[in-house]
Design a protein around this nucleic acid. Structure first.
Lengths: 329, 329
DNA sequence: CTGTTAGCGCGTTCAA
DNA sequence: TTGAACGCGCTAACAG
């Protein structure tokens, strides 16, 4: 590994001069710049990020804290979208991100987690899929020791921003469309996890619609589980003329239940994951752009790091109908 | 951030002494160890990895180079398994990994990529899903500038190991089981990408079985695409009494084709991704343990980093029957 | 067994 | 406009 010193010697200038042209300082003559650039090129010099970081103390990595939940969500399209969105934006913004799985931090006490992050020079992080049960992380956020962005959870303070889809509106929108399309009057709504962040918002949306359209709505909690959604649909599906689910996976469960008990009910989902196509049936769903959401999260982290105060930010959503033929190309 | 110096002062010892207890050097009396530990504890000292790395020059991060192919494989269970397997093992081995998407490196020339890795202090990397077309990476591997482990591709040299499932045997095994179960004589084999690494191995397996059992085998290339597999099955499915596919996704395509043209043919897949369950039908498939494969890859990287020469290593596989009820719990 | 010292590669004053 | 010199936080000889 060639160092800055070698470049300096080769170019016949001082180390500091090389450093200056590397970092685009003013007050360097064009001629010396040329010399230095030439040396850099011919020596194939690559600056050592580690050393630069140590020296400048400007080093901040952001942790992407994701919840790979192999139990309840085997197919993790969403997380991958999150990760790749964040990484691309990070590259654009020239900051370093490291991905961290919840499972790696499992069982650690708050101070252990803090130390872990510190030792890794991680002073900012983005939480994806934080739930009300993740108390350690709540504490972490509240102590405001790190700059945080929380996706889909209501945390905002001086050092914390949150990034959301408007869940209430989205749920309202998609259900409304389904209701209109099928002229439904009687809805089975399979919500997520009782008392969950997004679950509550989505519930608001469906309730709003029910009031507006004077619908009958039966509400059950499916805990985002396919199986539970399936069982709920088995039990109450008959009585409804439309099944609205708070997630795509639950929608799959509900659809399969309908098939099993041999009834047809339109089902609509939430998320817009591609998986929906694989079930081979057409389904209306909210399309969240997870890639973009994650990019926005990184932007927010940058703002926080540059001294802005935390805030809440909404990312737009769409509605789509997904079906097999759409995705097999 | 409290530094080692503050700890030293607080404990009334020299900096180097603190360093020694931090790194578990011998030749430190128990009493001073105690003093230092106490100071560390009370000051909440967290060592600065960056500085340690710079100083010791023992710094090597390993890049996990993954191919998030949103086009052909929307549902990326496999990659997530790879990543989490590698990260867990990395934590165990106390090395740092950074995940890198192919797409981030896209269009870069070899030397740009080299510089990118160098600037990130990445001197070792694991390639997942490398294909014959990724020439830049082949060059990268062949120049032996980095320690590499390649998963599912035949690269071995002084500084490169490969980690494999025995694709030939696996394909042989799964097809044999299917053939026996259904007493099939006439197979439609939907292979992967013509001239691909794993494709060729799997082809070997099926050919071997055909010889042994005196089967008739029609071979088509589905390019790992659902759509192509679907079309192939539409065209040739009727004539076969068993469809064997070189990937789960293609198996799904084939199954859907059978449904569409209203024939029943047993289909078997390859991979064992959970997604298979979602199609709602039972299917025999090879179960690759991607998590474990990735762990093995990290182990191999460690060996390379510690001076061992590259080698090829096989990871065992299993056969499973996946169906809906298995995974919705 | 402990402390002193010299770097690691780079950023950044401050003189010159 | 340039360069010498110091320091970032830590490791690793080497003395004592």
């Amino acid at each position: 590994m060639v160092t800055i010193k070698e470049v300096a010697d080769y170019a016949g200038v001082a180390i500091s001069t090389v450093s200056k042209v590397l970092n685009n300082y003013p007050n360097v003559s064009e001629t010396t710049k040329k010399k230095v650039r030439k040396a850099i090129d011919e020596l194939h010099y690559v600056p050592n990020t580690i050393a630069a970081a140590l020296s400048s103390k400007q080093y901040a990595r952001v942790g992407l804290v994701v919840n790979l939940n192999t139990q309840t969500q085997a197919i993790d399209e969403i997380t991958m979208q999150y990760l790749s969105g964040a990484m691309n934006k990070a590259r654009e913004k020239n900051i370093e991100v490291v991905t961290i799985f919840y499972s790696m931090l499992e069982g650690m006490k708050l101070d252990e987690i803090v130390r872990y992050f510190q030792s890794q020079s991680i002073f900012a992080m983005i939480f994806y899929g934080l739930s009300k049960e993740d108390e350690v992380f709540h504490q972490l956020i509240n102590m405001q020791m790190f700059k945080c962005v929380v996706v889909d959870a209501p945390f905002v303070n001086e050092n914390t921003s949150s990034v959301w889809v408007d869940n209430a509106k989205a749920q309202y929108d998609v259900a409304k469309r389904a209701v209109i399309d099928d002229n439904s009057k009687n809805i089975l709504y399979i919500a997520g996890k009782k008392n969950g962040y997004v679950t509550d918002c989505r519930l608001e949306g469906i309730k709003e619609l029910a009031r507006e359209k004077d619908l009958k709505v039966k509400i059950c909690y499916g805990d985002f589980s396919e199986l539970k959604a399936r069982n709920i649909a088995m039990e109450y599906g008959r009585e409804a003329d439309l099944i609205v689910c708070a997630s795509d996976l639950m929608a799959i469960g509900a659809m399969n239940a309908c098939i099993d008990i041999d009834i047809f009910r339109p089902v609509c989902g939430f998320d817009g994951i591609t998986l929906m196509g694989y079930v081979g049936k057409q389904m209306l769903t909210v399309k969240q752009n997870f890639y973009r959401i994650s990019q926005v999260a990184v932007e927010e982290i940058c703002l926080l790091l540059s001294g802005e105060k935390g805030r809440s930010r909404i990312v737009e959503h769409r509605l789509v109908k997904l079906y097999y033929q759409d995705i097999i190309c």
